[in-house]
């Protein structure tokens, strides 16, 4: 590993659009860990909505773009398990019949990491002094959990946060019902799934819910708020970077 690895941050479309704090938290964590962080301005979307909707042509085109935009970095880090899994697990499959692109897709897949997994498994960082006064439930997002094996990494990092206590959900591996376009295509089923998830969160007694994927977080936050629950919902990077100070997801500035 180079002494100061050059990291391309793929911020993901949801973080870019809805919650830039997660992106800046990722930058802080990576720079504190000694990385040189760059943010390619031409990045947009990893192509997952198209890929999961059967639009293989567009998915392939978007994958081709990401492969080009993120060429040359030592690592590409993504604050999302599902977008990282899209690049690591699915890009190579998209170019199965194109040896040249397949090689480049494999190369990118090998350099791409989900944020907590990069910090914990690759850099093995010692988290700087950071605190969070609260009890936290952790939702394991499906893609990160099952496609990348992200389960212990965020918990390992969170255990170093002073004042923070982790409470486990009864069904931590259960999908929250987001599923990209699934949640608007089958809203009744999604409602049942996110309803169960929100009840599981409330039952832990935790005051905060964390996860590593903004899609799941917006889904669960929106449901908890619809139920009138005071549980705060944040991306795990915000807590790890000591940036969990402003409004939580779906909340406004005080006053």
């Amino acid at each position: 590993m180079p002494s100061r690895p050059r990291v391309g941050l793929f911020v993901t479309c949801l973080v870019d659009l809805f919650r830039p704090t997660v992106g800046f938290s990722a930058v802080k964590l990576l720079e504190d860990a000694g990385c040189l962080v760059e943010v390619p301005a031409a990045q947009t979307c990893c192509g997952q909505p198209a890929y999961n909707s059967g639009d293989r042509t567009d998915a392939t085109e978007l994958a081709r773009r990401v492969i080009t935009v993120f060429a040359g970095y030592d690592y590409v880090v993504v604050p999302s398990g599902s977008c990282a899994a899209m690049i690591r697990r699915h890009y190579p499959a998209l170019f199965a019949d194109d040896p040249e692109m397949r090689g480049r897709a494999d190369d990118l897949a090998g350099r791409t990491w989900e944020l907590t997994s990069f910090l914990s498994d690759m850099l093995e960082i010692e988290l700087g002094p950071v605190g969070y006064a609260g009890t936290v439930a952790y939702h394991d997002s499906c893609s990160g959990l099952r496609e990348l094996g992200v389960r212990e990494q965020p918990r390992r990092l969170l255990r170093k946060v002073s004042g923070l206590e982790i409470k486990e959900l009864a069904q931590p591996e259960e999908c929250c019902g987001f599923g990209g376009t699934f949640c608007v295509k089958y809203p009744e089923i999604s409602e049942k799934m996110v309803g169960d998830k929100a009840e599981d969160v409330v039952a832990t007694g935790a005051d905060t819910l964390l996860a590593g994927d903004l899609g799941c977080l917006m889904n669960i936050a929106g449901r908890l708020q619809r139920m009138g629950s005071p549980v705060k919902v944040r991306h795990v990077a915000e807590v790890l970077a000591g940036a969990a100070t402003g409004p939580a997801i779906g909340e406004a500035e005080e006053g």
Partner: peptide, 13 residues
């Protein structure tokens, strides 16, 4: 089924 969290404001990029 749920509220839609609003974006924070300016995009990250």
């Amino acid at each position: 089924a749920r509220d839609l969290p609003a974006p924070q404001g300016r995009t990250f990029l």
